[in-house]
Design a protein around this nucleic acid. Structure first.
Length: 579
RNA sequence: GUACCCAUAGCUCAGCUGGAUAGAGCGUUAGAUUGCGGAUCUAGAGGCCGGAGGUUCGAAUCCUCUUGGGUACACCA
């Protein structure tokens, strides 16, 4: 069954054709636009008639009134009202509400669609360095990557989530060197510190040390060379410290609901990149200068020249990404590879994609950089040198603590079976909603105080609506047998709005998939919750002598909950029974 | 210097395949609970949609220029 929107769209189209015929006008393709009337009492869908005025040689207002007349004469489940140059259509709940509600409740996966079926999409995100724990910037990356993966899946794609651990390079050598100097054989276990924080502390220590001792940087570089040569002592320290960090980071992933299908490691792919570059050199795509450096000329895309391999044969960041991409295409031949990476790296990806094209890989055109903006603080930018970087674990824990305090202060502790789980879930909702409600491309300001607020457009508000509906449903202990949906009672503006919104939901899922933009869903869910809240506030649901009416509104609430759960799962926001 | 991104209410953000009086949240002011979770709801105040041209019946939305901010342009990652 078509959505209501489609139904009314074709009704308007047919009416227009009828009007055309009546006036002996031949029309070809009619492009029907739909929008929303400014107020719910005007209707649920609005059709502007401006664009038809020329062909019809009639004023938009006259066309509107004629179209409305035709629609009302067919019994189409719609009530049309001309309003100046617009035709407003109000859904007739008695005709359509039953269909919408049962379509949602009977469908196991309402909201899913198949626009990307048979499409293999790989999504790369997170990609942490192994010298320090995650910070707020990573959290935006993580929740965007996770959410987009889920959204693409809901649109029918076969999705593979991949991570790339940047486990190689000077940064990890700095932590290692500091550990050798000052570590005294301590371990995360012996100190009771999470591994990534443990290693990160040595990275900080190195920075302090290097300030007063110039030999520190020299020794770090020497260590990198030794590592590349395979020095066994350094190599095993490297393995040990990487494991500490990665294990710690994985704990954070677990807490924040992030997961990956495959982990790639830079240390394993950079060699591959070197081979690819050498192949390209043989093929004449690149060139070598006297000192042995391999270059690519990017003039054809309006850019400068770029080094792909150093004179001593060592690789660069870009080289490594070439190797990784090729390895991925071989491992799992994707139709599209999405890189969720901050907008600062747009130049890097432009170059990377072009180099892969030069190497003759025709799948290079299927690479996409999903670029997102920076996360700043109300006080300004996060700066590691000034120590204003917000640590991911600390942030999450403080949100969870505040959620717990709120539960306790509301005296709801006894209602909740698992306080830790519930406060963590609320923290996750607060964080993810706040980060995902902003369009990815935009820079944003993360206000910790606002994100944990329990009123307003926040994750906890959304969860609260879910909990309310759950509570409502659990109170409806009536015998359902014999009760039936009485769609005509859903005639108030707010009930009609709810029915129309639920009906439209799958379009939002599709749109957010095409745009790769979770904020489309986040904003929809907030609107839905707001509408539900108004409905809940204005209309007694359970208290009604007409048991069919109770049943009908319960079914409507159930449908709202189902859509809410579906949407929240796309945003990695848990819906709770109680909170 | 060159390229890309951004600019909407005091603050944080929607709206941008052009269409009705530009919308939310926070904050602020005033209200609502014998009815199901008030972590709620309603209403008021608050905008030359950075500026100037242009296209159009119609521009926050498209085009050009301009101003302000961000980012990138490493043999760092």
């Amino acid at each position: 069954m078509d959505s209501l929107k489609e139904m009314y769209k074709s009704a308007v189209k047919e009416s227009l054709l009828a009007v055309a015929k009546e006036n002996n006008i031949s029309v070809e393709d009619l492009n029907i636009f739909i929008e929303k009337p400014p107020k719910a009492e005007l209707g649920d869908f609005a059709f502007p008639m401006f664009s038809f005025a020329k062909v019809f040689r009639l004023s938009p207002a006259i066309i509107a009134s004629k179209v409305a007349e035709v629609i009302n004469s067919d019994n189409s489940g719609a009530i049309a009202t001309p309003a100046g140059p617009y035709v407003n259509i109000k859904i007739d709940p008695s005709q359509v509400a039953d269909g919408v509600i049962s379509r949602i409740l009977d469908n196991v996966s309402y909201g899913d669609n198949s626009i990307y079926s048979n499409r293999k999409i790989m999504v790369e995100f997170s990609c942490p360095n192994t010298n320090k724990p995650l910070h707020l910037g990573h959290l935006r990356n993580d929740c965007l990557g996770e959410s987009i993966s889920r959204i693409l899946k809901a649109n029918g794609a076969d999705v593979k989530k991949v991570n790339l651990i940047n486990d190689r390079g000077i940064h990890i050598c700095k932590s290692m060197l500091a550990y050798k100097e000052f570590g005294e054989g301590k371990t995360p276990e012996s100190e009771g510190v999470k591994g990534d924080h443990f290693v990160g502390d040595f990275y900080v220590k190195f920075a302090q040390w290097a300030k007063s001792d110039e030999s520190a940087d020299v020794r770090a570089r020497e260590m990198l060379v030794a590592w590349e040569k395979g020095d066994s002592e350094i190599y095993s320290l490297w393995e040990l410290m990487n494991k500490w960090t990665v294990d710690g980071i994985k704990e954070t992933y677990k807490k924040t609901g992030i997961s990956f299908d495959t982990y790639y490691y830079e240390s394993k792919t950079y060699d591959n990149g070197r081979n690819e570059v050498l192949k390209g050199l043989d093929a004449g795509s690149f060139y070598k200068t006297e000192d042995g450096t391999v270059w690519v000329d990017l003039e054809d895309i309006g850019l400068d020249k770029k080094v792909l391999l150093r004179g001593d044969g060592t690789t660069l960041y870009l080289t490594q990404d070439i190797g990784t991409a090729v390895a991925r295409q071989e491992d799992w031949p994707f139709d599209q590879l999405v890189y969720v990476v901050a907008s600062e790296q747009q130049y890097h990806f432009k170059v990377l994609f072009h180099v892969l094209e030069k190497l003759g890989y025709d799948w290079a055109k299927n690479l996409y950089h999903l670029s997102y903006g920076m996360v700043n603080l109300p006080e300004g930018k996060m700066k590691s040198r000034e120590g204003t970087v917000v640590d991911a674990d600390e942030l999450f824990d403080s949100l969870s603590r505040l959620a717990r305090e709120e539960i306790i202060s509301k005296g709801r502790e006894s209602e909740i079976s698992d306080l830790d789980f519930t406060s963590d879930s609320i923290a996750l909702a607060a964080l993810n909603f706040y980060l995902l409600t902003v369009s990815p491309t935009k820079d944003m300001i993360f206000n910790p105080k606002e994100s944990i607020a329990f009123n307003g457009a926040t994750g906890p508000y959304i969860q609260y609506m879910g909990a309310r509906i759950n509570s409502l449903l659990s109170k409806f202990v009536d015998q359902v047998e014999g009760l039936k949906i009485k769609p005509e009672i859903l005639s108030s503006d707010i009930e009609r709005t709810l029915v129309a919104m639920l009906d439209e939901y799958p379009e939002f899922v599709a749109e957010s998939g095409v745009q790769m933009d979770p904020s489309i869903i986040a904003n929809f869910l907030y609107d839905l919750c707001k509408s539900f809240s108004r409905f809940y506030h204005d209309i007694p649901i359970l208290v009604n002598d007409d048991r069919d009416a109770v049943f009908t509104r319960i079914m409507l609430s159930k449908a709202v909950l189902k859509v809410l759960k579906h949407g929240c799962s796309l945003l990695n926001i848990p819906i709770l029974e109680k909170m």
